[in-house]
């Protein structure tokens, strides 16, 4: 699983302040009613606890530490500023610096390797990503389109602005159910179907070729609505590998275990989180 997918809100505590609600309290059982005043409706205060990863440590199957990534944020933890990868001797291997509209990759010596210029819309959806090498040569461009806040297309262009690929995201009742991958000429090349359980949890993601034959698939298992197991299957449905998620009480995956079909551990990721509170008001 991509690290970025671990990143954001996992649990929210919503505190509803409701001055008009009757409460069973000493004051509510007073025998003599108080003077009735006009009640002014106050906005609801919503406190959301946001968990964000601060470190991900990778271990080999035998438990030996391999490498780790440290994530640095601004003071209140709301903006990722830097991502640094270290080896098990604490020597920096690479780093990624995040600035407004720019993401830069540096090697171990601090030399720029490549960078991306990123354009976001008002809802912070990525609209455009231009990737450059360290000599400012444009390598590729990714363009995204959204409708009602949902991503509906992703196009990739090469450095000469020739279209390389189009991906279309299709929704049923606002739920992503199909992804089509098209050639530059607009012909279907492959597609994915996403199946959900009744409660809205993703159950399976099946990859088909243009002829509609299954290429591979992923299925998902949950415990108390938290994802605990992901099975990656071959076209004949046999398991190729597994990803096991161990979650904390808030559902944050604190340990991710990558295994082969025989349950041999290939890698174990341990993720540390910190949290911050976001306060918003709702009228």
């Amino acid at each position: 699983m991509k690290l970025s997918s671990l990143t954001f809100v996992l649990v929210a505590f919503i505190f509803l302040g409701c001055s008009t609600s009757p409460s069973i309290s000493e004051s509510s059982i007073d025998a003599v009613p108080a003077v009735v005043k006009e009640v002014k409706k106050e906005p609801k205060k919503i406190v959301t606890t946001v968990y964000y990863p601060v470190a991900v440590v990778s271990y080999f199957g035998d438990g030996v530490k391999d490498e780790y990534t440290v994530y640095s944020y601004n003071e209140d933890g709301s903006t990722l500023l830097k991502e640094e990868l270290f080896n098990n001797k604490d020597i920096l291997q690479q780093s990624i610096a995040y600035e407004t509209g720019k993401k830069s990759l540096y090697d171990a010596s601090g030399t720029l390797v490549s960078y991306e210029l990123i354009v976001l819309d008002a809802d912070k959806n990525v609209l455009n990503k231009e990737k450059y090498d360290n000599k400012d040569n444009l390598i590729s461009v990714s363009e995204y389109e959204y409708k009602n806040g949902m991503k509906i297309s992703w196009k990739i262009f090469n450095g000469s602005n020739s279209l390389l690929s189009t991906t279309l995201y299709k929704y049923t009742d606002d739920i992503l159910t199909r992804i089509d991958s098209l050639s530059p000429g607009g012909e279907m090349e492959e597609y994915f179907e996403l199946l959900y359980k009744n409660n809205g949890l993703l159950l399976e993601n099946v990859h088909y070729n243009v002829e509609g034959k299954v290429q591979d698939s992923r299925s998902f298992e949950y415990k108390d609505t938290f994802l605990v197991m992901e099975l990656i299957k071959r076209k004949n449905s046999s398991v190729l590998r597994k990803i096991m998620y161990l979650n904390d009480q808030y559902g944050n995956p604190v340990e991710t275990v990558f295994m082969d079909a025989g349950d041999n551990v290939q890698e174990r990721l341990i993720t540390d989180y910190e949290s911050r509170e976001e306060i918003t008001y709702e009228n």
């Binding site: 997918s5 919503i14 409701c18 690929s165 492959e190 996403l194 809205g200």
Partner: peptide
Amino acid sequence: TRLIKIITIILVLFLVAASVPANEVSAV
């Protein structure tokens, strides 16, 4: 007295969305 209701909502759908494999990304 003001009763403050504390409701814990697990944003499961958000979690699942975050966990959806980048299958199509890999494929592309």
